[in-house]
Design a protein around this nucleic acid. Structure first.
Lengths: 213, 213, 213, 213
DNA sequence: GATGAATGAGTATTCATTCAT
DNA sequence: AATGAATGAATACTCATTCAT
């Protein structure tokens, strides 16, 4: 059994460790079978726990799915924070965040598929990611980089572009060129010209490569 | 019981009429309960047919859902054909098609929700709609209106913008301003500048109003 | 489609031909799927007839199975008659009849498996075969070859030996040595000594080989 | 509700007791309706258990039937052990075992009918009974009582004689004379002369009467 | 807190049979 | 006689949830 958040489990008390192992198993099962086809007993079996133990920690499957998605979102947000620190330019922030977000979701198939499904089941649950996105888009408008009206429709549609990219890469394999195209598409959607979009993405990706070196 | 495609049923033989009434009921049930929660016996009961009759016409629920989505897509395509005839300019075609598609899907809540869910469950099933879209985008590139690379990613992401718009309007009520924004977003995604996008959408919508008068 | 009793079908009127084709198909299906798993629509489909046609000719599956078994028994009896004609010695008759019966049933897997299953479902249905057997055993007692009390138990148990042999050969392949052993077992069961049984079987089988040359 | 193996149930844990009560009910239902017509819910209802409980203990009806037959075979074997202890002579052992086996199966109609049907559905499942039989036949050959080749065909055919006898007595009532004839038939099948067979059976049955006195 | 046996409502699916054409 | 669409009763099986231990 693989512990996605083992670090969080260390030192935790027994109750918390049991809960974490249920979430770990849930991510595996959800990503393999999908939410509807996931079975509680598959989750408990994979966690090496008894059937009834589940109900000591969660009310039902929806409760578990929300907890799993939260755990994943929190973890990705933590990882993103590092890459985003110190980037001032809004367009760069959007590109870096989108690229890293897609990359993390694709590298960790289990996370990615759970996120995609949760986004589809409840688009509003991605509120956390949207919050960051919103602040960067807003900053970009102030900085005069984005010529666009900022509203929920726009944010949700940007989110949809990202989800489409993740889903396609989960289905057909990691594809950095596609991530690049997706970033260009996002920038165009934000009002940049095609040529400018390409320049911005190229610049941001160069910066990313420097960072991850 | 409401027959969505009653015109098609007239003159059809018995088998075909039964099949159509199952599809009619299915659209109702799917749109009310959602695919996963829809029950075969709800569909047959609403069609006034015996339980087993379903299996004389479909293999399973997936089969039925595909048939229902196909029927809807075909019907919308037929309705669109009228509005699209005689429009040469690609940008106008894209705007008119998107606007009308969203409008029809939103006006007919049952169709819309089935389409949205099918798109989410099997994005490729929207192949029919994508085909028309692809030809118009391709035309727009040739005409020098769109500055973009035409690939499956782009088409699927445009589709996602439309689906997001339909879903939001189904949830929060018909909203022509949102459709307008969505069209502008699509044109920007296709490489047009924000101001140009606004002009094109305005022009196309003016033409639409003339047509539907 | 193979006609087991094509000869009977030639010249018959249409009703009779339809009935025969249903019996033909039934033998195929029963032998492939077994009685319980055989489906009426499999039989009609294989006969190239409509579902409902079945009920113009038979009341139900049991009716059909009985008709099929009767047709097979009649056919085998006809074939046996040739081999048995002119054999006076009872022991020889029993051996020849048993050997040929097993051989025909094994050669024609479809017949054999239907016979075995029918025997198991309704041991009394083998009345026809038992009648011939009874007369030969009776003759053998009169001729002083069999030292045994002739009763229904004995006849049914002899029948069981034959069925066991057919079943085993259907499962593991034709095996003339096993048929020989079965005949010896039958003769011992009829009161012959082991050595005498072997001689009789050897003699009868020699005669059989002459006949079939 | 009658517990066939109540003694075994005492002291068993809950799971095992539930399983036993399902087997008990199954024997009742199988013997009444036959395997094919037996319904899982009849079994659970008779056991006073919920429908789904069945699937906590068995995979399907076949699984249950095998378990039931095993339980019966084990029980009969246990009962036979007492009667067989101390009998050295192979012919006597075969006669005593066959007689008692038939008697027990006939006295307990439910056991008998389940055994008969299982034998017919899966002749190999009678492996346990066959094992004992094989050792006694082998012993008889060594002791010079049986003049016969020991092979699977022979064992299965002896089994068939016993099954035929049980089936007839279940159908027409207990009949010790028929059991006697069956034993004589078995001994003749094993190569004994008719007169010797009669003597052996008479002797063994005399011994049996002494034992059971 | 963990266990796991028992629950039982809920449903998809099969298929013999009918009958209007 | 043949058709074949419709029927609908019958049933195996699943699995979230409970609760006594």
């Amino acid at each position: 059994m693989h512990h996605y958040f083992q670090s969080r489990a260390i030192g935790a008390n027994k109750r918390e460790r049991t809960r974490q192992s249920l979430i770990d198993s849930a991510i595996d099962v959800f990503s393999t079978k999908g939410f509807e086809q996931a079975r509680i007993n598959q989750v408990t079996a994979q966690a090496g726990l008894a059937n009834g133990t589940f109900y000591n920690h969660f009310n039902d499957k929806d409760d578990l799915a929300a907890a799993a998605a939260d755990a994943i979102a929190l973890e990705i947000a933590t990882q993103l924070d590092g890459a985003m620190a110190g980037i001032e330019r809004a367009a760069t922030r959007v590109v870096v965040a989108s690229t890293r977000f897609i990359a993390i979701a694709v590298e960790n198939r289990a996370w990615g598929s759970v996120l995609v499904e949760q986004y589809v089941r409840a688009p509003m649950a991605s509120g956390l990611a949207t919050r960051y996105l919103k602040s960067d888009v807003s900053r970009g408008i102030e900085q005069g980089q984005f010529e666009v009206t900022l509203d929920d429709l726009l944010l949700e549609q940007i989110g949809a572009l990202i989800i489409v990219s993740i889903r396609r890469q989960l289905a057909k394999g990691s594809n950095s060129a596609q991530s690049t195209h997706t970033c260009e598409n996002i920038l165009r959607l934000l009002g940049m010209t095609p040529s400018r979009s390409r320049q911005e993405v190229a610049k941001a990706h160069a910066a990313l490569r420097t960072l991850t070196k």
